[in-house]
């Protein structure tokens, strides 16, 4: 497939902080590409550089053959951008917001009125079309913001954390809409900190940590090295700092980590004999409340590749959002 986004050695610093360091990747036409990383990893800075809202210090960006840093306005014709915050105009109605966004891309009145109505219906917002955006629920705001991003039928859609902070039902509906858009031929560049969302939607994923890309591959390839991994989760009565080290000494072939309070995760390339683990805990007076065998997921790949606990990533992201 022909690449529509080509990024080479992209770097960006803010004062002393290097937000993005030497990032290189390409996205094929029609692909749904996931950009996954914790808060502060450089996802939004990369999107800002790709869309012309930030200037790279070094490196090149080509969008459909257009040198984006040199000619951002030409590239912006091809892009739809949905930022991580629903930043439409609170004083305008849903319909007026869509129509205004269409006008920003030079759409004629009849064209944008028709398209706005079509999108309102598609996103289930027809009844709220004449209500002011300020009165919308979070999920409705997110849907309208995505609709505004595609009002001009862009070739490439940049989605920054599209389902963040909304309820489960709205998030599911949005994921379905994103998948439909991609099936209709729109190239989608998706940044998210929800690993399962990326796993479900994306064909290829890049893991970005501390401004650098750790790995880029298809979900299948990323998972292939993990299919033989055995993973067991134990919920126990107590966990102290030395427990993992002791487990490691007793069972050198097991990788052990605690990924939340009183939960121990054991991974191994060999079969995990549950009995010996149970005895290990019993010898130390630790009760086991639950033991589960887990199918390896992209989250496990992420943890392995980045060294960051996925749970910690969610926590950091949520705290930052609350702030």
């Amino acid at each position: 497939m022909e690449p529509i986004i080509n990024v080479h050695s992209l770097s960006k610093s803010f004062g002393e902080v290097q937000a993005v360091r030497g990032v290189t990747f390409s996205v094929s036409r029609g692909e749904l590409f996931g950009f996954l990383g914790p808060n502060g990893a450089g996802k939004t800075t990369t999107i800002n550089m790709l869309t012309g809202l930030a200037r790279p210090d070094r490196g090149s960006i080509s969008i459909a053959g257009i040198d984006c840093p040199r000619n951002p306005k030409a590239a912006q014709h091809l892009m739809g951008i949905v930022p991580d915050e629903s930043n439409l105009y609170p004083e305008l109605t849903g319909f007026q917001n869509l129509s205004f966004c269409g006008a920003l891309y030079g759409m004629k009145k009849t064209e944008r009125v028709e398209r706005a109505r079509e999108l309102l219906e598609r996103f289930g917002l027809t009844e709220a079309a004449d209500r002011k955006f300020a009165g919308y629920s979070k999920g409705m705001k997110r849907k309208l913001t995505i609709a505004a991003g595609i009002i001009h039928s862009p070739e490439i859609l940049f989605l920054d954390e599209p389902t963040s902070g909304i309820d489960v039902a709205s998030a599911r509906q949005l994921r379905r809409l994103i998948a439909e858009l991609n099936q209709a031929g729109t190239t989608i560049f998706l940044t998210t900190h929800y690993i399962e969302e990326a796993e479900r939607l994306c064909s290829r994923i890049a893991f970005i940590v501390s401004g650098g890309i750790r790995t880029i591959d298809t979900v299948e390839h990323l998972m292939s090295g993990y299919e033989d991994r055995q993973i067991m989760h134990f919920e126990v009565s107590s966990v102290d700092d030395t427990l993992c080290a002791e487990l490691g000494t007793e069972f050198p072939r097991f990788d052990c980590r605690t990924d939340s309070r009183n939960r121990i995760c054991i991974e191994s390339s060999e079969t995990i004999a549950v009995g010996q683990i149970v005895r290990f805990f019993e010898d130390r007076g630790i009760d086991i409340y639950e033991a589960r065998k887990i199918r390896p997921s992209l989250e496990d790949v992420f943890v392995q590749v980045t060294g960051i606990e996925a749970g910690a990533m969610h926590e950091v992201q949520e705290k930052s959002r609350q702030r």
């Binding site: 012309g52 306005k73 014709h77 892009m79 915050e85 930043n87 920003l104 891309y105």
Partner: peptide, 14 residues
């Protein structure tokens, strides 16, 4: 401050 100005900066208008 409400970031709606970003929308204008990202539009293909000089």
């Amino acid at each position: 401050k409400g970031r709606s100005f970003e929308r204008l900066l990202l539009a293909p208008i000089s």
